[in-house]
């Protein structure tokens, strides 16, 4: 795979940002690929959690090796601690990641598909919230997956993570959160062109309860949501396994590597 670190300027945020990108490449591993077949390639946006950045997925998981024989591009943006939100402190991270980033990606990389049917978004923890939010609030993504996602309906669990000041800076008055543009369950109610959803959370994860609640609500709304749980905590060991499960779930020709043992 070709690996790129792209420093670009975000007009929306008014600052330089970095995205890491994995592109399929011609090599002995894929003798049947040609430049002609590597067109209109599906794109997977891979969103990080809190305390991570655009490099963490590649450092903590096998993602690059897993997609080695699959024609798919992976885009990993830098998102800071902004919860994929147009924050009250004035930086519009949602617009930057949901709107501007795909425009930049299409502008820079002619091989990548701009079709909704071939654009997917996946994230962990804060990025799981971000993945569902991007897919439900825009019409750009046909599949979205959340791993150990902070699929918050009410905001009480947030105060265990950070201070009230922090959350007010991002979402504003927490009493107004429910029913707002940041409430993914409200977004789910209002979403016209529904994405297919996949959700995984570890049974020992503190977010287990909020995932149970969120998925129950999504099912109540008749969403096509695949919900899986297994023993596990909020750790990369599980996300490394789960990212392959997501690749199998996505509507791509995922080619699993040979494993003799």
């Amino acid at each position: 795979m070709a690996h790129l670190e792209v420093d670009y300027y975000s007009q929306v945020l008014g600052m330089d940002r970095t995205m890491n990108v994995i592109l399929p490449e011609l090599s002995d591993h894929n003798p049947t690929w040609t430049n002609e077949t590597l067109q209109d390639i599906p794109v997977l946006y891979l969103l990080n959690g809190m305390s991570n950045n655009q490099t963490t997925w590649q450092r903590r998981t096998d993602i690059e090796r897993l997609v080695r024989q699959t024609p798919i591009a992976i885009v990993m943006p830098s998102t800071d601690l902004a919860w994929y939100t147009n924050t009250k402190y004035g930086l519009n991270y949602f617009d930057a990641i949901a709107q501007e980033l795909p425009e930049k990606v299409a502008s820079f990389f002619p091989q990548l598909s701009t079709k909704r049917s071939k654009n997917f978004v996946v994230g962990l923890s804060m990025g799981g919230y971000g993945a569902f939010k991007l897919a439900l609030a825009t019409d750009k993504f046909s599949y979205a997956a959340s791993l150990s996602g902070a699929l918050i309906g009410d905001t009480e669990p947030l105060l265990d993570l950070e201070s009230l000041t922090y959350w007010q800076g991002i979402f504003g008055d927490l009493d107004q959160f429910s029913g707002s543009e940041n409430d993914i369950l409200t977004l789910a109610e209002n979403c016209q062109n529904r994405p297919r959803l996949y959700d995984w959370v570890g049974e020992q994860d503190e977010f287990k309860q909020i995932n149970d609640t969120a998925v129950a609500k999504l099912k109540q709304l008749s969403y096509d949501v695949t919900y899986e749980t297994a023993p596990g905590r909020h750790e990369w060991y599980y996300w490394d396994k789960q990212i392959e499960r997501v690749l199998e779930w996505l509507p791509i020709d995922y080619v699993r590597e040979e494993r003799l043992s």
Binding site: A2, H3, D7
Partner: peptide
């Protein structure tokens, strides 16, 4: 304008 740092396998 963007700066892209790229690594890949070269056949040559």
């Amino acid at each position: 304008m963007a700066v892209s740092r790229m690594s890949f396998y070269s056949e040559k």
